[in-house]
Design a protein around this nucleic acid. Structure first.
Lengths: 342, 342
DNA sequence: GTTAGCACTCAACACCATCGAGTGCTAACG
DNA sequence: CGTTAGCACTCGATGGTGTTGAGTGCTAAC
């Protein structure tokens, strides 16, 4: 059996309704809707077909139908009519985003709360991937006897810092000289390439071998760890309780636990890196805990590289339309704000 | 009417039981308990007295009694027998705490998750108050044309950074010289006194007035804002859903919203600064949303100053005993770890 | 002063009838 | 031949009813 025009129309109406109400949709409801000129009986026949095709499911015999994952997939791929954000909304969001300090972490934090406010779902943002950023400046700052803070300023203005041990007897001026050398050598290198650069330096400057060795180690650890917990920011986790699908405390707890595990989130969001919007519906997430959730992500850039991800997590019956518009806009806005230093 | 020995005993037994079960406790239950050698009837009489005195309440006529806030207050003040943590637990917690990077934010993050793991409640930690920290080093790092990052290393090793605009034509070396001057002047000053120091410098060095003016402004803003969102760290928010008092979704949402508002949390925790443990039960929190919650806080020090707060938020019937032991231990452990730089 | 006994209260639970939204099928209609 | 009205059927939701049991308060006896 093929899907004809009318089946599309009806399926769309069902999904639209279900997204709003979270209640199984009956034939009468659809029939009454504007744009559909058929009697409940006709609709019932079509619904029966759609069920057979795997797009709809019945919770029980005498209930309406609910969309299946397959239906959502079809919906986001073909049926959805994109809505635009009003200029008002855009302005408001943009304003919130730029109003705070320019520090990257703060910008991202603001972005997360703007996202969750605008969508009423939970938002997650992953900070720029370190590997793709370029080093702008390296600075060693004395902290205590034989201890220094290594600060790395990148093209995104982000500061990565780490405490390292330094050989005895180096004062602030020594550290500055070393910083200068480090900066000269490493400036404009992507963090990824930093390793070779370091090894070259090790050959050159024998006397500072120990210091550089430690700095290298720390850097490497940073890189492979992929950043720490502060790099994944969650906004609006209270929103999830607004939706009836999480009024079951166990489901809600499940969801919350996922939100607390930053590693999992990073993994979930960090899969693809294109500018396009990625939508994963229910089981497509490959995580049993998130079988009833959808994740919509977009990515943002710092400078020329696509580096970070922003996303919305919500029930499968989320308002994809709205979420996509918001994410798309915010992705661009975030890229703009963060690329300002470039 | 006065509370005699037996009334204390019974009240304690009731609270202990209620903390475990969250169910109204009846006279039989108490009577059966070891240590109480009276029949249910006797206990009933005593319970009736205790109710009249305001220590107990009855949800409805034919139910058992539940402790009132007044009872919890009495409990934590007088009745509670302190339990010690096992050495095993102490070691385990300490290990988790020091295992990660030494960066202050990471230490605090670890501490929050250790706290919530150990207590099964939600933990909140407020980073050291800036005002009491001493400046160790100030460094300006070029980020882009006319933009520099001002990094302030404090006695706790914390880095406060802020983007500031600088006059045109200053290169890295100029910034370094300025940093040196700043460091010389400001080193060992508490952040609180920084303002006067700055004004003095403004008089001295006319030519850098603009730069310093901006730096001063930024610093001031930082100080009065009391830090940004990253200074309040919440751990184990999923834990709250373990308790039947939050199986009502609305209550849970209430709670979650509070946890998301970092400002509120800072206010809630930041009230007192003594090393002692502070316990606020139900309405004592002065926040209607938290009428069913208790907040137990301890403070930790960096160096000599009492500066930050760590706390547990949970239902009023929380296991005060355990929570207090854990907080006390963690307060000390955190102080040790953070004061290492001193 | 303590306790056994007893009548009373009331939430929780199971049971049952009713209601209504929704379906599938069939037959009639244009 | 597609569409629709009509109708019997299903089944969750709702609300009323009776029962159960935990718990109380009171009184009288120990």
């Amino acid at each position: 059996m093929q899907l004809d025009e009318r089946k599309y129309l009806i399926l769309q109406a069902i999904i639209d309704d279900y997204i709003m109400t979270a209640m199984p949709v009956g034939s009468r409801t659809i029939s009454r809707k504007s744009g559909v000129g058929f009697s409940p009986a006709t609709i019932r026949n079509e619904m029966s077909d759609l069920e057979e095709l795997g797009y709809l499911a019945q919770p029980h015999t005498s209930a309406g139908r609910v969309p299946s994952y397959k239906a959502y997939r079809l919906y986001v791929d073909h049926l959805m009519k994109t809505v635009k954000l009003t200029n008002d909304e855009r302005e408001q969001m943009h304003e919130h985003l730029v109003s705070r300090s320019k520090q990257v972490e703060n910008v991202i934090r603001s972005a997360a709360s703007v996202l969750s406010d605008a969508t009423k779902y939970t938002s997650v943002i992953v900070a720029p991937k370190l590997g793709t950023l370029r080093i702008r400046h390296v600075q060693l700052v004395p902290v205590a006897e034989r201890t220094a803070l290594m600060i790395i300023v990148t093209s995104a203005g982000i500061v990565k810092d780490a405490v390292i041990r330094v050989p005895e007897g180096l004062d602030a001026d020594d550290l500055y000289s070393i910083s200068r050398i480090l900066t000269q050598r490493l400036a404009d290198q992507p963090l990824e390439g930093v390793r070779q650069a370091f090894s070259e330096m090790l050959r050159d400057a024998e006397q500072n071998r120990k210091l550089l060795g430690e700095a290298l180690q720390v850097l490497e650890k940073r890189l492979e760890a992929g950043g720490d917990a502060s790099d994944v920011i969650v906004g609006g986790s209270a929103n999830l309780l607004e939706y009836p699908e999480y009024s079951d405390v166990n489901k809600a707890r499940n969801f919350l636990s996922v939100l607390e595990s930053k590693d999992t989130l990073r993994r979930l969001l960090g899969r693809e890196g294109s500018m396009e919007i990625s939508i994963r519906i229910g089981p497509e997430n490959q995580m049993p805990e998130l079988n009833d959730c959808s994740i919509v992500t977009a990515s943002y850039r710092v400078g020329d590289h696509s580096t970070g991800t922003l996303g919305i997590i919500g029930p499968t019956r989320m308002n994809y339309n709205r979420v996509i518009s918001v994410l798309d806009f915010m992705g661009r806005a975030l890229s703009d704000v963060l690329s300002e230093y470039k």
